[in-house]
Design a protein around this nucleic acid. Structure first.
Length: 302
DNA sequence: TATCCAAGGTAAGTT
DNA sequence: AACTTACCTTGGATA
């Protein structure tokens, strides 16, 4: 077991681990006690995620545990590469100070940045991000988490770490073997055939989400919609929360509500046009950061 | 207790 | 290309 820690103060713009992992941008980390943001703080503050073997340098499934305490980010992991992996997954190298100060002045965005200082975007593994956001359609945040746990427990590799068993996120190959009926039994509803078919596309090599990285932002968004169950909104989520397109602004119900109430001039007749307008409103290059702060702020009653 | 409704939308069928 | 409609499931709100 590899353990260690680093000072939060050494990170430009700090870190709010809870806001980062429970703001609805990633569904791949869980509190040890399995509870979610809406249920309030509890437990000892540890979060864990399990990366499938096919995505790790060691070629073995990796368990990462992290918590924030006394101004430090602590970790326990089954891999010696934990520091690099955590920095990658939590975007610890982003200069949050610079990003915040480079965003245009705006009452709502300023309030969101102020209320949740330290919230960082994540860099989720592409396939897991893709599947989790296919699951997110018309679904409550807490249940999206539950779906990912159900998928991992049903189809993921079991990993033993520090006396406890963890389930890795399923591989495309294993998920492609699932039947629609099986997936529906996990309460995926109409998303079941989408997940199965998309997993099959990745497993057979027909298309992999990483391939979008070769394209400019709007072309990448369009390209991702080839996956079944992926429209413009989910494509934006994958671009922002996995592939590093920080200008992406997923137009979900909360952001559309914000546009109606705060930025009516950005409300256009198509996703593409509204997207362009709100991205400009949010300062372009890092518009996705503003989106995620505003989303979290509104969802938590801001 | 029964019914309604929204939840980080998308696909398929029509105009 | 823009517009409609159906779609699984569940927890919380409303009657």
């Amino acid at each position: 077991m590899d353990t260690g820690s680093r000072r939060i103060d050494d990170l430009d713009g700090g870190l709010d681990l809870r806001a980062t992992l429970e703001s609805g941008q990633s569904y791949l980390w869980r509190r040890d006690d399995g509870r979610t943001y809406e249920q309030g703080a509890s437990g000892d503050g540890w979060y864990h995620t399990v990366l499938p073997a096919s995505t790790t340098r060691t070629n073995e499934a990796e368990v990462l545990r992290v918590r924030q305490v006394d101004g430090r980010l602590e970790w326990e992991a089954s891999t010696p590469y934990a520091p690099d992996r955590i920095a990658e997954l939590l975007r610890l190298d982003d200069d949050l100070e610079a990003i915040v100060s480079n965003t245009p002045d705006d009452d709502l965005v300023d309030a969101a940045y102020e209320a949740h200082r330290g919230l960082r975007l994540v860099r989720d593994p592409p396939f897991a991000c893709l599947v989790s956001f296919i699951c997110s359609a018309q679904m409550h945040v807490s249940r999206i988490f539950d779906m990912q746990v159900a998928l991992a427990e049903a189809y993921g590799e079991t990993v033993r770490f520090d006396g406890r068993e963890y389930a890795a996120y399923p591989t495309p190959e294993r998920l492609a073997e699932a039947t629609e009926r099986e997936l529906r039994s996990l309460s995926l509803g109409y998303r079941a055939p989408y997940v199965r078919r998309t997993a099959e596309m990745v497993a057979t090599g027909e298309a992999r989400p990483e391939e979008a990285q070769d394209l400019d932002y709007e072309a990448a968004r369009e390209w991702l919609t080839r996956f079944v169950g992926v429209g413009e909104k989910v494509a934006d989520c994958v671009l922002l929360f996995s592939l590093g397109y920080l200008e992406a602004v997923p137009l979900d119900t909360w952001i559309r509500r914000a546009i109606a109430e705060h930025y009516p001039h950005c409300d256009r007749d198509s996703y593409e046009a509204t997207s362009r307008a709100i991205r400009e409103q949010f300062g372009g290059e890092f518009a996705g950061y503003a989106q995620t702060y505003v989303f979290h702020h509104l969802r938590t009653g801001g």
